Simulated assay, not measured.
Amino acid sequence: MGRTRRMAIVSVLALVSLVCLGMGSMGQSVKVTKVPEPDRLFTAEVVDAEDTSYTVREFSVEGLTLVPVTLGKAEVSIDFAAIRSVEFQYDEPTLAAVVTYRDGSTRKVRVEPGVNFYGRTKWGMLRLAARDVRRVTFVQQEATPAP
């Protein structure tokens, strides 16, 4: 009886271990295989939470060239063309941001931490969740839309 019980326990533990190992790839893939085509072309300097900086072309929020924010109870979309920079401060579970407009004025807002920024760098495609961004500075807007 003791041996059968031990075998059952070992079998259950082995099965649980296999299931847990299989869960390692759950969630978002680490590969970026596609960048949404933006509605307009912007280049931005992005600094992430680890102080790594990137020059990103075709920068967008899931293909749109606006930053979706919450201001009070209102949901607002701020056009990239109006923004000089955005400074993010992640304080789980919220993501606060200070938007500096091209005219020099500023506004404190909130951003959903899971919003994804996309673009292209000289070494490949980029996807970065808003929670992992420290600063975005817009450096250029192209005159023509993406082909």
Rank of each mutant, 00 (worst) to 15 (best):
D91H: 06
I83E: 09
D103H: 02
L64N: 13
F59P: 02
S85N: 12
L21S: 10
T55N: 08
T106A: 11
G104E: 06
V56E: 03
T52N: 15
D103K: 04
F80H: 06
K31A: 15
I83V: 12
F42G: 00
D39P: 02
G24T: 14
E75R: 15
G119I: 03
P38L: 08
V111S: 09
V98N: 06
E58I: 05
Y90R: 11
G72Y: 05
Y118E: 10
D51A: 09
V16M: 15
V61I: 05
Y54N: 01
K31P: 08
L18Q: 13
N116F: 11
E50Y: 06
E62W: 10
F42W: 05
V111M: 04
V99F: 02
Y118V: 08
A96P: 04
T43A: 05
L18M: 15
D39K: 07
Y90F: 15
D51C: 03
L95Q: 09
E87S: 13
Q89K: 10
G24S: 14
Y90I: 00
E37G: 11
L71Q: 05
V67S: 00
Y118D: 12
E92V: 00
N116G: 08
E58Q: 14
Q28T: 14
V35Q: 03
V86W: 01
D79H: 08
K31C: 13
V109C: 04
S53Y: 09
V98R: 08
L95T: 07
E45G: 11
D48V: 03
Y118P: 08
K31S: 15
S105L: 07
F88Q: 01
G119T: 02
V86Q: 02
V67H: 03
Q89P: 02
Q28F: 09
V76P: 06
Y90N: 06
R107V: 08
E45D: 14
T65I: 04
I83P: 06
E45C: 10
V69L: 05
L21C: 12
G119E: 02
S29R: 07
G104Y: 07
K31V: 15
E37D: 14
Q28K: 15
R102A: 08
V115W: 05
T106Y: 06
R107W: 04
S25P: 07
A96N: 11
